[in-house]
Design a binder for these strands. Structure first.
Ligand SMILES: NC(=O)c1ccc[n+]([C@@H]2O[C@H](COP(=O)([O-])OP(=O)(O)OC[C@H]3O[C@@H](n4cnc5c(N)ncnc54)[C@H](O)[C@@H]3O)[C@@H](O)[C@H]2O)c1
Ligand SMILES: NC(=O)c1ccc[n+]([C@@H]2O[C@H](COP(=O)([O-])OP(=O)(O)OC[C@H]3O[C@@H](n4cnc5c(N)ncnc54)[C@H](O)[C@@H]3O)[C@@H](O)[C@H]2O)c1
Lengths: 215, 215
DNA sequence: GGCACGCTGTGATGAAATTCACAATCGCCT
DNA sequence: AGGCGATTGTGAATTTCATCACAGCGTGCC
């Protein structure tokens, strides 16, 4: 109904699934599949066919009745919707266990995310290379980001330091934050935060063990 | 209304929030706060007060009208609901970047999760120590788990290997799976899977950059 | 060419989750 | 002791999300 320029209210779950579709389509493209129908998607991903069509419908019309969707084209259009059709620079703050894992993760580049800079406060880490990325001083976040222009920050510092580095990142021009620290960040209205909580995931799983009480 | 023994239909979002409450309560307890009201929770976490009360109401009555909730007691009861009131054994499969970060993560123990064993297929890693945990051969998952009795598995192997190790884990008696590989696992009905997808999170964030087109 | 089939896009319907609103309860203060 | 402000627990209303169902179009087949 409306083009990708200004979509008024796209449900968050739809956005989450778009990323799943994108991944799926990339894999399909690698397998040289040219066309796919919503029913095929349902068979292979378990996501309801109507759901898939409705998700796409928020952004325009993509498919041909009687045929389906062109894999390559759809993949490109979803990437555009998600603003990852060209390299999207990211800053990582905290180069400990988790931060290092992210820096070394090739999957990010595959999806056009680019870790442009990584920061830490530990003098033993500053100046060291991780892969081909040098760890920078967290005090320089603002000046460095004036060059880099990252609008996405990933926070991988201990909970006690998370609010502080979030504030700094926002000052440096970051618009959205992926937070791995187990606290709820206080940020201005306009800033979007998403939290990743392994503990939360594990807790939900752990709860489900209850049904197997027999054994 | 019904006790913690057999709750018929607890919404998943409620379970996710329970973990958040738990974390929050642990921090409160460390700050020697004894009592808290649902409105306080709203102020400090941003979660609606009625939501908080309704979430708890699925599991019985916890608070006192006019007063609020006893922090310590509530914390203990949520832990019990989530089955993490005593150490919950977990197996990790794949001791690469991400698996290693998890193995070295102290936050797990803090929440009564215990990584009882870690497996890999790489001969260079098998037999090595990470922290005080020895990496075991992935071929031994079944025999080892006969001793350990882990019902939770965390999958940290490449996407191409994920389905295989999931099958193995299920054979070994695992009931629920936390999957970090970017694929949709095919598992029997009774098995609960939760996927953690950093790319999905980043994609949702990246999408939101659109609204800041002015500058 | 025309007909029949398959698939899309979407309004209508249904389910689920969140928020509202208030009666019931508690502890405190006088 | 009794009334009052504060806070809980929860049915009802609202909002959000998922699914259904079908009109309409495109393609290929006869
Ligand atoms: N490791 C995991 O598997 C895991 C899982 C879930 C959540 N987390 C969370 O992710 C965060 C990071 O975990 P981790 O295991 O990598 O911890 P870590 O201790 O290995 O690394 C934290 C890093 O942050 C740096 N740091 C501290 N204060 C800083 C500051 N003000 N500015 C910049 N850098 C600073 C430290 O020097 C260190 O290098 C924590 O909040 C943790 O709770 C980790
Ligand atoms: N590193 C990250 O930050 C990150 C982020 C998001 C998702 N992931 C996903 O998590 C998974 C692991 O990522 P990683 O960075 O740790 O990769 P990695 O390559 O560092 O580690 C993978 C490990 O799995 C082992 N392995 C391979 N096949 C195996 C098998 N059949 N049985 C047992 N072990 C096996 C390998 O030997 C290796 O040690 C991948 O699916 C990746 O897409 C990683």
């Amino acid at each position: 109904m409306n083009s990708s320029s200004s979509s008024p209210k796209v449900p968050i779950p739809t956005l989450e699934r778009l990323a799943t579709y994108l991944r799926f389509l990339i894999d399909l493209e690698a397998s040289h599949v040219e066309t796919i129908s919503s029913t095929d998607v349902e068979k292979q991903t378990g996501i309801n066919a109507a759901q898939f069509r409705k998700d796409l419908s928020y952004f325009g019309e993509f498919g041909k009745p009687g045929v389906g969707y062109n894999v390559q084209e759809l993949q490109a259009r979803i990437a555009r919707i998600l603003k990852i059709d060209q390299l999207q620079p990211i800053m990582v703050i905290g180069a400990g266990n988790l931060g290092s894992a992210l820096i070394g993760y090739p999957g990010l580049t595959e999806h056009k995310f680019h870790i442009a800079a990584a920061f830490d406060r530990d003098p033993a880490k500053i100046g060291c290379l991780q892969g081909n990325l040098m760890i920078l001083d967290e005090a320089d976040v603002c000046t460095v980001n004036a060059d880099i222009g990252a609008r996405i920050a990933i926070i991988c510092v201990p909970a006690s330091a998370a609010q502080g580095v979030a504030d700094t990142a926002i000052l440096a021009g970051v618009k959205v934050i992926l937070n791995f620290a187990p606290i709820i960040l206080r940020v201005p209205e306009r800033i979007v935060v998403r939290n990743v909580s392994f503990l939360q995931e594990l807790a939900v799983l752990s709860y489900h063990l209850s049904s197997d009480t027999k054994k």
